[in-house]
Design a protein around this nucleic acid. Sequence first.
DNA 1: CGCCGTCTGGATAGAACGTTCTACAGTAAG
DNA 2: CTTACTGTAGAACGTTCTATCCAGACGGCG
Lengths: 194, 194
Amino acid sequence: MVTQPDTRTKIRDAAAVLFRRHGYPATGLKRIAAEAGATFGSIYHFFPGGKQQLAEDIIRGSGPEYMRTVLALLDSTPDPLQSLDIAFRAAADNLAATGYADACPIATMALEVASSNEVLRLATAQVFAEWVDEATTWFGRWVPDREAARTLAHALIMLLEGAFLLSRAARDREPMEAAGRSIRELTRAALGPA
Amino acid sequence: MVTQPDTRTKIRDAAAVLFRRHGYPATGLKRIAAEAGATFGSIYHFFPGGKQQLAEDIIRGSGPEYMRTVLALLDSTPDPLQSLDIAFRAAADNLAATGYADACPIATMALEVASSNEVLRLATAQVFAEWVDEATTWFGRWVPDREAARTLAHALIMLLEGAFLLSRAARDREPMEAAGRSIRELTRAALGPA
DNA sequence: CGCCGTCTGGATAGAACGTTCTACAGTAAG
DNA sequence: CTTACTGTAGAACGTTCTATCCAGACGGCG
């Protein structure tokens, strides 16, 4: 039905890219409008709350969307170790393919607003909490102990985020590959004594 | 010999706190001057390169300084597993004590500049590389295989950084504690087959 | 046709940004 | 006393920021 993206979507998509790559304060609304092919007035028409509402919208939207992508990769094979390998390899490939620009959609913003903007901080916290819950459920399929599964879920996300940080800074996929080895090692250890 | 901090040091220290908590673009030179008890002119007197030079100075200075703190904790006992426990517990304590504000001194900036400022990106990359090397040496004391030690070093730093991200967003020490359990589990696995 | 809500285009405001510039205080050397 | 140097103080510049405001274009409908 929708032949071409409407203005609201164009603004959202352009802002999401800029926020992810450069962060919240460094991204100007003027630049968002330019990249979206929209005008200033349109931003405030669709997002009366201004920059903050736009960012919150993107955090709460891109977060779950990204997790869905990751979960799809994690379900690509029945073997959890092999799925983890595929997922982290895909993350490294995507990172390298985008010139080490596109990583976690909300990590940069999360660090930026953690001590200065309570509304956005809460949004990022809720997205991360959702990720941990979903990853815990995923690990729970093979790891009966819920505490152990939750620790693995935390490790998965922290290794992924840490690898994004190091890989983006170094423009090198080595950290992401090390992260993949580590999460597989942890999972293997949790599966072993079964 | 130095009775009170000179202006250069006051500016550096104030800027380091602000950059760490709010990031690079969100921190204004005016605010830095105010917090440091200095004036505009003094900033440009000591840092003719402006904001970027100040940030690079802080990245290259605070990075190694922070690693020294971590390494001191890691050498607090002869047992690596116990030292890791102490270090991650200290990180969680410090985080909670500062209202989840003071975490990694350069992580926020590293993500912000990774795709927009090559000078600062390189500075962060070199600091991280140094961290990995030093952590590799530390693990190397018990793990003879250098590749394995380097993977552990990456895991240590990535888990720490990931835990900073999640803990700051959630204002909760659980992620940091999970990171501590995970790095000890990985280290245990590497020590086991010895 | 005229009407009306939706959306666009852009001017404008007022504040804050990084940076540059000049003036000046204090001190040590000649 | 003069000269030179280091550091302080802050005004001023041009740019960019978020946000507000309004005139007008568009499309469905009576």
